[in-house]
């Protein structure tokens, strides 16, 4: 099975923890007509990592790099989640039973469904596992 179609390229960006960094990123995306589908900010001791899912990752990557940002691609998976109690549990418990660790995750809920974005230590195993349990994964070409 080809797992690659479910490996979504997320843009990760190193940022100092100071005003204006998110605005600079957002402005660059606007100017390049890049749409941000989801994002999260993780902060630590004086710095942060901004993670974004965009529709045109290559465009965003080269523009942000040109602006001097420290940028990297990371593979994440996005899985449809029932937007009701127990929805997160059924995904998290499957991964846990298989000994797959979640490095980090973020989620958003839309009109009828929610989407869980996962960065895990064993990407291919996680994709196979979730598909075998009839979860719906978002394919890269449907958004990017």
């Amino acid at each position: 099975m080809n797992c690659e179609q479910y490996m979504i390229r997320q843009i990760s960006l190193f940022s100092e923890n100071k005003p204006g960094r998110l605005a600079a990123l957002a402005k660059a995306c606007q100017e390049e007509n890049v749409n941000i589908l989801a994002f999260s900010i993780a902060e630590a001791d004086g710095f942060g990592v901004i993670r974004v899912l965009v529709d045109k990752p290559d465009v965003a990557f080269s523009r942000l790099t040109a602006l001097g940002f420290n940028v990297a691609f990371t593979h994440v998976i996005a899985v449809l989640m029932r937007d009701e109690p127990g929805g997160l549990f059924e995904i998290a418990s499957k991964l846990s039973d298989a000994g797959i660790n979640i490095d980090y995750s973020y989620a958003f809920s839309g009109k009828n469904k929610a989407i869980l974005i996962l960065r895990v230590d064993k990407v291919e195993e996680a994709i196979k596992l979730l598909l075998s349990h009839s979860f719906t994964l978002i394919a890269t070409d449907s958004i990017q």
Binding site: A44, V49, R51, N70, Y104
Partner: peptide, 18 residues
């Protein structure tokens, strides 16, 4: 300044670098 090659998406790696 964090070197480009040293950037990891994982906070734990960055804290380790620091």
């Amino acid at each position: 300044e964090l070197a480009k090659e040293a950037f990891s998406d994982k906070i734990a790696d960055l804290i380790h670098t620091k």
